[in-house]
Design a binder for these strands. Structure first.
Lengths: 252, 252
DNA sequence: CGTAAAATTGATTGGGATCAATGCGTGTGG
DNA sequence: CCACACGCATTGATCCCAATCAATTTTACG
């Protein structure tokens, strides 16, 4: 194995994969201690990004994937006319940048929605290491495969769901992600604006606002600015998926 | 390397990766001959699927990815109420099944739109082999990465584009795929029905039909049932992407 | 052929976009 | 500390694109 990466930023940062609370999530491995150490050695902890700063830009040469440690990122395309199209939000433990492998350039930009820290994982090192640790390679396949099936769910949402279902799906999706990393599934803060939610879901800002207001009136959620509390989780879950189709489908 | 797979169906099928015209596409490798031979040995050529037959079903245990050799497949989800949601169409040289790695089960069903032949690539063998051939591993990463960025383009299409742009994007996407495998980019046959196109694009059948009719009237394409000829490729390309936003954006 | 599925075409409706105005919170400089 | 401005969010009014409903026509197939 090649030498310890000299340029690491974390001489003062104590964090390491061994004692990182996210390690079971970002690459959920059953690795031997020595393997974790190897993995740990290729990872660089970067200086925090402030709100609005870029992690990488569309077109940049691909060299690393990044695991979010704290904060939130969004990824987006810029169309030929400068319009922004958000393709994803990334919470702690989630990997961003995987779509850059194919073309050797990032096909999207990644920007911090709030102060955000990431672990940089140089891909060439990761790939090399994955040759030595078959379970690591399998995990990378799994993470990418998961991303593909998640994105396909998103395609279903965009193609088939109405505004209520889109917003409900979005909130429940966030809820599940917070829950998985040990936070409350019913009470959390939205780090993105209504405009960004609308952009992501294919809805106008006004529609997002109206749906959220209506959900609150119907006592499905409680909202205070960016703070969200899901009051009636079962009803929200019923709303997601096929709710609006029940009538149509029932008579088939 | 482990033994030659005994259960192969291709004792009578002459096709092998070495002389398969698609080999440069399905896993575009620069492999040494002996590596190609190894890859060839794990691949099983399956009996052709007839129209309407399943390659695998949503929920089946994941064991293989498949390269389409001839014909076309669609993948789709079935919602809780039995509604079908098409998530992709697969032409020759394309790999299907990659989304099953994560959960060890296929999250979608795959069905033949016409008589279709595939190469079955048992994933455990592929993974094992990829440990021995780093460039193979890299290619698998690339194929998955490509799928992720393609799906994200599809998300943009579904979320932001109007009916004209969706249909034009769809036709140009097919055009590019045919071109890549050496067929005409301007003249081809749609193996899917209007209904399936609409399902995939998040449009009603009637809308698909109307858009296609209008494109024909405007001499962008010529249509005869399932036969499509793209007459004005530049105009179609202009239509895709941001065409309808030009006015809105221009005055910013 | 004859029948069913697929495709087309027309009429009407409706969900969400757009336009417009106002409210709210936050940071900034006088 | 307040006044102001600016971005973000909400709310209302109107409009339009595509869905839906409905009726044929065309194609595929046993």
């Amino acid at each position: 194995m090649s030498a310890h990466t000299q340029s690491r930023f974390n001489s003062t940062l104590t964090s390491q994969c061994q004692n990182c609370s996210l390690s079971a999530l970002c690459l959920p491995l059953a690795l031997a201690d020595e393997d974790i150490t190897k993995l740990d050695q290729i990872i660089e902890r970067k200086k925090p990004l402030k709100k609005g700063e870029f992690l990488f830009r569309q077109g940049d040469v691909f060299d690393s994937v990044y695991a979010v440690r704290s904060g939130t990122l969004k990824t987006f395309n810029i169309t030929a006319y400068g319009e922004e199209q958000i393709t994803g939000f990334y919470c702690p433990s989630e990997l961003v940048g995987l779509s850059g492998i194919d073309s050797n350039a990032y096909p999207v930009s990644a920007k911090a929605l709030e102060t955000t820290t990431v672990c940089e994982i140089p891909f060439s090192h990761l790939e090399e290491l994955s040759s030595q640790i078959p379970s690591l390679k399998h995990q990378i396949f799994k993470v990418m495969s998961r991303k593909i099936s998640d994105d396909q769910q998103m395609m279903v949402l965009l193609g088939k769901k109405n505004a209520d279902e889109k917003v409900a799906s979005f909130l429940l999706n966030l809820s599940n992600r917070f829950k998985k990393r040990g936070y409350s599934a019913t009470s959390f803060r939205l780090s993105m604006s209504r405009g960004e939610i609308g952009n992501y879901l294919g809805l106008a800002v006004e529609t997002v606002s109206r749906v959220i207001t209506r959900f609150q009136k119907n006592e499905l959620i409680h909202v205070d600015g960016k703070e969200i509390e899901i009051v009636d989780l079962p009803e929200m879950q019923k709303l997601v998926g096929v709710a609006s189709d029940c009538g149509k489908i029932a008579h088939i």
